[in-house]
Nucleic acid binder design. Sequence first.
DNA 1: TTTTTATGTTATAAAACATAACATTGTGTT
DNA 2: AACACAATGTTATGTTTTATAACATAAAAA
Lengths: 135, 135
Amino acid sequence: MSGSEIRRTMPLFPIGIVMQLTDLTARQIRYYEEHELITPARTEGNRRMFSLNDIDLLLEIKDLIDQGVNLAGIKQLFSAKNEKPAAEEAKKEDEKVRRELSDDELRKLLRTELMQAGRFNRSSLRAGDMSRFFH
Amino acid sequence: MSGSEIRRTMPLFPIGIVMQLTDLTARQIRYYEEHELITPARTEGNRRMFSLNDIDLLLEIKDLIDQGVNLAGIKQLFSAKNEKPAAEEAKKEDEKVRRELSDDELRKLLRTELMQAGRFNRSSLRAGDMSRFFH
DNA sequence: TTTTTATGTTATAAAACATAACATTGTGTT
DNA sequence: AACACAATGTTATGTTTTATAACATAAAAA
């Protein structure tokens, strides 16, 4: 229940991709960040890099805005959500294991998990449909 | 058995991220493309965008090269792999369904699947470790 | 009506990436 | 040994993408 937070926090996507996945403009995304609804990572060159968590948040924001909630309200909703820590125990144990992972092991894990990330349930989308996102 | 091919083909990652995930240089990645071991998508601006499938392929290539196989050999291995179609039936059925998906439905599906993509098995990595990839 | 909120638009600078050409290193061949 | 080729490094140059900031605008709130 705490392990799923891990790779969802990996900064993988540039803003251009996030725009297409969320159907938000760069202006909107940056504005939400400015108001601390999201805090995407930055590359060394200061470019925003978004994680799956960030994308989820953006999609939630969009839904809420579509429902008439303003940013202040969304902020409240989000902070209310995080009221529930529920992940106290596993933290320290993870901490212990962390140091023992070599770069190579890390990459192998990452590989496995990336491959798994692709194995979704069933064929609801097809490759051709992705032309909507890339021309 | 054919559905899992779908989102694995979505072009999501720029070359910089792929370099970090695979530990390959841009030169290597482009060279492998030049020799048709991978064929990443392109943005309108001609930038390469890689899918999970592409990343898997790159990792396989790396493994094989580490084992002393040259590009010609890898090419043979890959083409041998694709000798097995094994996905003939589902194609036409999928084709039928495809047209009926609206953009909005597509995005909703995408959302669900992205969220699911993050829900991996267990805590083998931790957020802090990702600082290796982003400084 | 006047502010405030949320977003659009434009200008300017820098980061990331593209291609291409040449250099280097290792391996196998003659 | 000398050579050729495969794989990768390095450098130069141009384009795309993203960053910030400032100003504009429409809709909602006060």
